[in-house]
Nucleic acid binder design. Structure first.
Length: 760
DNA sequence: TTTAGGCATTAGCCTAAGGAAGT
DNA sequence: ACTTCCTTAGGCTAATGCCT
């Protein structure tokens, strides 16, 4: 028999003390479960101790490359995967910590995006072959649950699921037991859950998706099913990784859209301050979630209109999750193409893991022995050892006219390639660090491959401008190229090298400093520089033209593939005084382009932990000051302060967002958001964003004791603390900007005469 | 579990100093 | 003259989120 299709799920079980790998393949006809027998778990060892253990199946002598040289070592096969873990400590073991199913996929070089041709008899695989890497078109089912919660956080042991919605290839379904006016009302919660699973079985999609379904929906469904004594027709396997979970649904590829967005996608494609379904959907699709007033939820069982609303709301969530998935799938496929494994694995990776698996795949292709993961002690030691990073120029506060910004194209990756920086090529002699040129290092070679693929994709994109798959490829490759430097210094990395990381950063400093002196020698004034960028100004009739000529000259002197590019020419640039001292603040500036566009970096207005009011006012002030409209800026701020004092500002504008980074109980210094969260009684988890306001309280109280969750403040109709918002939000965000044009605090408050009377 | 280091900024925590009140 | 209690100023640093 022959089956063609794509791999979506992989697992194994033990039969007669031997592993059998289960593979789920999908194609247009449906899904098939195939078995692979005879793939043995193994690891490598540098030496062979006197050991006679029946768990060892076989030992082979093999050759592998270590530090550029071929050496001989032992390949130890065990009977079952668990024995790799049990036996490795008796050996000088390598590659003993790679999951068995992943080992299989790496060795066979297959992934979810390869079209496979599989020969089998009686579902037992004889041969697997890749026949193309045409983009698959998977059938996707999105789902979402709603829970009737008596307390602030739903508790599976007491709070039932009231509605489950699905979105499958345009078909929408709601499974609910609430009486409503639109959807079928099922008997009870049990029937809802069972019908939902029946529906999944009937449609049999390749991919199941949810938003935060790893940590909420699926574990909740599983818990409720246990409590209700239901026999689920599909197995849900929950793996606990620290406090986070991973849910595998056997025979399907379950993807939690939120995990991928949080770990990867948002890093290069989103600006949203929060990664809730609502915010992400709004930014990516320009669509909002339905509104549902949860404070009325207690009457859901009596009010069929309200129930209908809830079902609609539930359905919209599945629909949005589906739409978001369709966007990110392009990115998942591109990553999968580069590093192999399954979409399940890819979708849960952080950028460190993506780089690691990419390097592991190339190491395997080049027969290089993969270094071990560090031990806990090594990780701890690495975390505490920091190398010197990038150079940042100390700017002088003020407004500059006619500023050109130039920067190195992919500075760190270029340095890695140009100098062959790699843990295997590094040579240390009498405190001198050099990099062997005898062979290309694994990392430089991989970075070079990423560069090549990226420029090919960019060329194709020029001919096919609307191709979303190509756009995804370009951005994925950029993310990956920029991750190698970080990976070299990442404590958990298999290819960690303090010296390599330090050397990349040192060369980066060398290049930017060289650039600064070169530009100065050409008569430019350097305004600012950070890592790979340089802000230049000069009295010139045509700055752009002049810069372009200089760049051409300068680039001749650089080693390949390094290149300094013109990023843009700006009409004006604003740098402000830092809070302490009279020096200019670094990593904080605003640019005004020729067409009036404003670019703001580092200021409060781009930070989420400032109120929208302060951010908006600051943005306007920057814009007005850059356009030489001081009076208007002053009036705006004065008017805002007046409104705050009169209590006229809406609470929405005063919300501050801050992420909870640790467990609520483990703070040494409980800040505003921590106190607001604690007081609410809601069980907030690390990673959640807390929205709060500073409410009016006793004058002497700490700010944190006046912090109240926005939701609660709104419900209770609390008043805001005007003094706080004036003195700790508005004034600090605009003062340094005004000061660059000679306006003082007294001028803003309009109290100059008062203050003279009082202090003078 | 969060690819690197550099930086600005706020506010909580702690201590010392100083004042007021009490003995 | 001494103790106790309270307030305040200032230093230190935890915490967050930005920049490249």
């Amino acid at each position: 028999m022959e089956t063609n299709g794509y791999l979506i799920d992989i697992d194994y079980y033990i039969e007669e003390n031997s592993p059998v790998i289960e593979i789920y393949i999908v194609n247009e006809k449906g899904k098939e479960r195939l078995l692979f027998k005879g793939f043995k778990p193994y690891f490598y060892s540098l030496s062979l101790p006197e050991i006679n253990d029946e768990r060892i199946e076989n030992i082979e002598k093999v050759k592998k490359i270590v530090n550029g040289k071929e050496i001989e070592l032992y390949k130890i096969y065990t009977k079952i995967p668990a024995d790799v873990k049990n036996l490795r400590n008796y050996f000088e073991s390598y590659e003993s910590d790679i999951l068995f199913t992943r080992r299989f996929l790496i060795d066979k070089d297959i992934s979810s995006v390869d079209l496979l041709k599989i020969d089998h008899s009686d579902y037992v695989i004889q041969k697997i072959e890749k026949i193309s890497n045409q983009v698959p078109n998977f059938k996707v089912l999105a789902f979402d649950i709603e829970v009737f919660s008596r307390s602030k956080t739903p508790i599976p042991s007491q709070d039932p699921i009231i509605s489950i919605s699905t979105f499958y290839e345009g078909e929408q379904k709601v499974f609910t037991w609430l009486k409503n006016n639109k959807y079928e009302t099922l008997k009870d919660e049990s029937e809802c859950i069972l019908k939902f699973f029946e529906y999944i079985k009937e449609k049999d999609p390749a991919i199941l998706i949810g938003y935060n379904s790893d940590n909420f929906d699926l574990p909740y469904i599983k818990k409720r099913a246990e409590i209700l004594n239901l026999n689920l027709p599909i197995e849900i396997e929950i793996k606990n990784k620290e406090e986070l979970k991973e849910c595998r649904v056997k025979g399907f590829c379950h993807i939690d859209v939120y995990t991928f967005i949080k770990n990867i996608y948002s890093k290069y494609n989103l600006k949203s301050e929060k990664l809730t379904l609502d915010e992400v959907a709004y930014e990516m699709l320009n669509e909002k979630k339905d509104q549902f007033d949860w404070s009325k939820a207690q009457s859901l069982f009596e009010d069929s209109d309200l129930s209908t609303q809830l079902c609609d709301y539930n359905l919209k969530d599945s629909y949005l999750t589906y739409k978001i998935y369709k966007e990110i799938e392009l990115h998942l496929i591109e990553i999968n193409r580069l590093i192999g494994l399954t979409l399940f694995d890819i979708s849960r990776m952080t950028s460190g893991m993506i780089v690691e698996y990419m390097l592991m795949k190339r190491a395997k292709e080049r027969n290089i022995l993969i270094p071990n993961k560090p031990t806990k002690e090594e990780v701890y030691e690495r975390i505490n050892k920091k190398f010197q990073g990038a150079f940042v120029y100390q700017p002088s506060p003020g407004i500059y006219e006619n500023v050109a910004v130039v920067d190195f194209r992919s500075l760190y990756p270029s340095i890695i390639i140009a100098n062959n920086i790699d843990p295997f090529t590094i040579r240390k002699e009498n405190n001198q660090i050099t990099f062997s040129k005898d062979f290309k290092g694994l990392i430089p070679e991989t970075v070079e491959e990423v560069f090549k693929l990226r420029s090919e994709a960019k060329d194709q994109l020029k001919k096919d401008k609307e191709n979303k798959q190509l756009m995804a490829r370009v951005s994925v490759l950029k993310l990956i190229a920029n991750s190698f430097y970080g990976y070299l210094g990442y404590a958990n990395s298999r290819l960690y090298s303090f010296e390599c990381g330090a050397e990349v950063a040192r060369l980066g400093r060398e290049y930017i400093l060289k650039t600064i002196s070169f530009m100065e020698s050409k008569g430019f004034k350097v305004v600012y520089a950070d890592t790979d960028s340089n802000f230049l100004t000069k009295n010139s009739k045509n700055l752009e033209q002049e810069i372009k000529e200089i760049l051409k000259e300068y680039n001749e002197t650089l080693p390949k593939p390094m290149e300094l590019e013109l990023q843009g020419v700006y009409k004006r640039a604003l740098f402000v005084k830092s809070q302490k001292g009279n020096e200019g603040a670094r990593k904080k500036y605003a640019l005004l382009s020729e067409n009036g566009e404003i670019i703001i970096k580092g200021f409060q207005s781009v930070r989420r932990d400032w109120s929208l009011l302060a951010k908006e006012i600051q943005y306007e002030v920057i814009k007005l000051i850059l356009n030489d409209k001081k009076e208007e800026a002053l009036n705006l701020v004065r008017k805002t302060i007046e409104m705050l004092n009169k209590g006229e500002v809406s609470l929405d504008k005063l919300v501050i967002h801050t992420m909870l980074r640790k467990d609520l109980s483990s703070y040494e210094q409980a800040g505003r958001h921590v106190e607001a969260a604690r007081k609410s009684g809601i069980d907030f988890q690390p990673g959640e964003t807390i929205d709060y306001i500073i409410a009016k309280g006793r004058e002497k109280d700490k700010t944190s004791s006046k912090a109240v969750l926005f939701k609660i403040a709104k419900e209770k109709g609390l008043k805001y603390d005007a003094n706080y918002y004036i003195n700790n939000q508005i004034i600090p965000s605009v003062l340094s900007i005004f000061e660059t044009v000679g306006i003082k605090k007294e001028d803003i408050l309009g109290k100059r005469s008062d203050s003279l009377l009082r202090y003078g």
